[in-house]
């Protein structure tokens, strides 16, 4: 499948370091390479501190990587500045995590939705009302909401507004940063369904960042699992329970509570917690939590290697 699909974004060996003090630095992203295929969803899963949000900020051009390239349709977006960067933002947009923080509290829904279009002079002020109604209908909301303020809306409605705003510019890529985490389960499901419908209609590429592997699995084509700044596994998002190879991915899968699970069996979990990114172990980042670590794991950091077609994992134990 992936061979026919065009790679719209190529993240190539991207590293992002933050200087904490003169001698220490925090490596938020460590040599990450990822492809985004056009019209597909790349799900990025990981626990807090794994660098998934930093990766997103790099993709949006809010921050620059320490090294490496992000190629968007043949152009390295890490070099963009000023007006070129502003223009680039038309093509990649984002939906925020917390819908109660994502809107200017003193702007009406109509103004929020049309702000990007006015900024790029794509519509005139007189067309605002019609355009807002069109966008609201797209996300299955009543056009009457256009005159309201965001605080008068429910969480699910606000998140739909967030999606509508992000899609107003008809971007090619949409980044969703934990966009469903602050919502109730039933609302969450509807938002995911909406995203998938819009993806089919608009041939949208989606980067779906989330900590819930079960949810990502339900809506992504490819799944990238991140741990302490590295991608540890990249796999097609089919039958992941069977195909996942990396011990961390397996640990994530076994820690999921869902309704199909065996309620009589004790829940599986790896021990301890992820170390702070300031304090990464040498060699394999997952080493000190891994149930089967070997001597080589402490010496070398395992690279991402192919274990099956379209399936990559970074683990010494698999080879």
């Amino acid at each position: 499948m992936s061979e026919e699909r065009e790679k719209i974004i190529r993240v190539e060996n991207v590293t992002k370091e933050y200087a904490v003090s003169a001698s220490r630095s925090l490596i938020a992203c460590d040599n990450i390479s990822l492809p985004f295929f056009r019209g597909q969803t790349l799900g990025i899963v990981g626990e807090s501190g794994c660098g998934k949000s930093t990766l997103m900020r790099l993709l949006l051009g809010v921050e620059r990587p320490t090294s490496g390239k992000i190629i968007f349709r043949g152009q390295n977006i890490c070099d963009l500045k000023g007006e070129a960067l502003r223009r680039h933002r038309q093509r990649i947009q984002m939906v925020f995590q917390d819908p109660s923080e994502a809107f200017h509290p003193k702007m009406k829904i109509k103004e929020i939705l049309c702000e990007p279009l006015l900024n790029f002079r794509l519509i005139r002020k007189s067309e605002m009302k019609a355009k807002a109604a069109e966008l609201l209908t797209m996300v299955e909301l009543s056009p009457d909401l256009a005159e309201r303020y965001p605080h008068a809306l429910s969480g699910g409605q606000r998140q739909r507004i967030g999606i509508a705003r992000a899609l107003a510019l008809e971007p090619e890529v949409l980044i969703c940063d934990e966009s469903t985490s602050a919502l109730d389960v039933s609302v969450q499901k509807k938002i995911v369904e909406l995203l998938c419908r819009l993806q089919r209609e608009k041939d949208l590429t989606i980067g779906f960042i989330c900590h819930d592997i079960a949810l990502v699995h339900s809506c992504a084509h490819t799944l990238a699992v991140m741990y302490l700044g590295s991608v540890v596994e990249l796999l097609p998002c089919g039958d992941i329970e069977e195909t996942a190879r990396h011990p961390y991915t397996k640990a994530l899968l076994s820690a999921v509570f869902d309704l199909e699970m065996d309620f009589t069996k004790e829940i599986d979990s790896i021990e301890s917690e992820a170390p702070s990114p300031l304090n990464r172990p040498d060699g394999c980042p997952f080493r000190n939590r891994c149930p089967r670590q070997k001597e080589i794991c402490g010496r070398e950091k395992p690279p991402l290697r192919s274990v099956a077609p379209d399936h990559f994992a970074a683990c010494h134990l698999l080879f």
Partner: peptide
């Protein structure tokens, strides 16, 4: 550092607009 300011910037607002509108 609020999300809506980041959103304003990502919506392509120019600096002048960020200062006067946000």
């Amino acid at each position: 550092s609020k999300d809506y300011v980041a959103a304003g910037k990502l919506s392509g607002s120019k600096t002048k607009r960020m200062l006067f509108r946000y």
